[in-house]
Design a binder for these strands. Sequence first.
DNA 1: GCAAAAGTGTTTCTACTACACCCATGT
DNA 2: ACATGGGTGTAGTAGAAACACTTTTGC
Lengths: 242, 242
Amino acid sequence: MDETPWEPPTVLLAVDLVILTLRSSTLHVLLVERGIEPHKGRSALPGGFLFDADEDLRTAAHRELSEETDLDAARLHLEQLGTYGDPGRDPRGRVVSVAYLAIAPELPEPEAGTDASAAAWTPVEECLSGRTELAFDHRSILDDGLERARAELEHTSLATAFCDEPFTISDLQQVYEAVWGQRLDPRNFYRKVQAVPGFIVPALPDRRRTRGRPARLFRPGPRDRLRPPMMRPDPPTSSEER
Amino acid sequence: MDETPWEPPTVLLAVDLVILTLRSSTLHVLLVERGIEPHKGRSALPGGFLFDADEDLRTAAHRELSEETDLDAARLHLEQLGTYGDPGRDPRGRVVSVAYLAIAPELPEPEAGTDASAAAWTPVEECLSGRTELAFDHRSILDDGLERARAELEHTSLATAFCDEPFTISDLQQVYEAVWGQRLDPRNFYRKVQAVPGFIVPALPDRRRTRGRPARLFRPGPRDRLRPPMMRPDPPTSSEER
DNA sequence: GCAAAAGTGTTTCTACTACACCCATGT
DNA sequence: ACATGGGTGTAGTAGAAACACTTTTGC
């Protein structure tokens, strides 16, 4: 049908990162302020173009992560989220961006970019409410990243990636509550988590000094997929169909 | 840091399709025989390069689908699966491929390509066992597609996309059994499916003529996300950790 | 009538919820 | 002592599995 000599179109390939963390029990996302057009001065997800034609996609994501934060990128959970390639999403031309989702434990210092204009942890609520508007289609990438994180908390051990080791069970509970936006019963959570084989394993009989009784400490277990899953309670469903 | 004039590398963008269907109670995937190098003569997932720089990714997937099968592409469930961009996955150069997952009900005629050399429904078992070797990294794309389909059967109404309307509950059960590779109890399945609000709704009091008592007919319901989910039974777990 | 598949009832077991209660520590 | 969060017991409820049994058709 089309045996005519035909040149496939080339596109620019980029990676974008949704980096989530918990800061004082609130979910935050790392945003940079764009230093150049388009969308100069607006907040955006960290990311950038593939460096050269031999660079692996995941490697590119790690590189951008290192360039724009001081995180120990190696130990970070990093997972492909989706690819965003609508024509017109970037006025400079056809840019297709592969988004990655990264989860970081709470950091000592919030920012310290070596590359981008400014990097800052921003409460996700600010983005969702529209108080902070994101460049390009980064709002929908963020939405997808949040929904992915919420779903993975049910079926994988992702939550432990938010925590520094060792962690207490209520550390873990704060992760679930922040990401799901729901309060959970600490007593039931305590047992439910431990009922999942391989999710968490006890650490040294060390104990954490806070108010109240010291808590036992745990580390991530060997299992990545949770069986049974940690199902989130149904949100108050407005209408029932039949 | 690098303010030197720098040209971002361009890549070739492709789409690949994992098209699954049920044929005589067995899960099949659509494969084409490659007519050109590389991997000439080998089986591969249908797909191809982006047509031009203005073409949407999903549109490209639909176009390739129409070109290589006679499916009514419009009514097909089509969902982004992931992006495969390892350098070296294609010897022709840097090709990044966005994979889509499509689910089709059983078709009157299995093949009829207008574009590719030959299209054929192949039992997925043939690919998994290695009896049919796939070109490029299509084997791992297929693996990801299967795992995605298995997971979506639990949480979404994807299974109805395998069925022609109207369908019986045991039609639906065959979908679950084929994709999960597990036998299910028909009596419990019968009630479990109907206990999910909005999953399926009764169709005309028409009945299907087979051996045995005729079954009631149903259509897909309004809900896309299943609550409660249809959890698959745990596969016989080999080892328990503690 | 008999085979075959659809659909129902019932029992048992497990899992989740809600909440009362006890435990260990800092102040 | 007492406040504060960690951890345990337990009853009530809902859902899942297992399986006996009835119903409706084709032959």
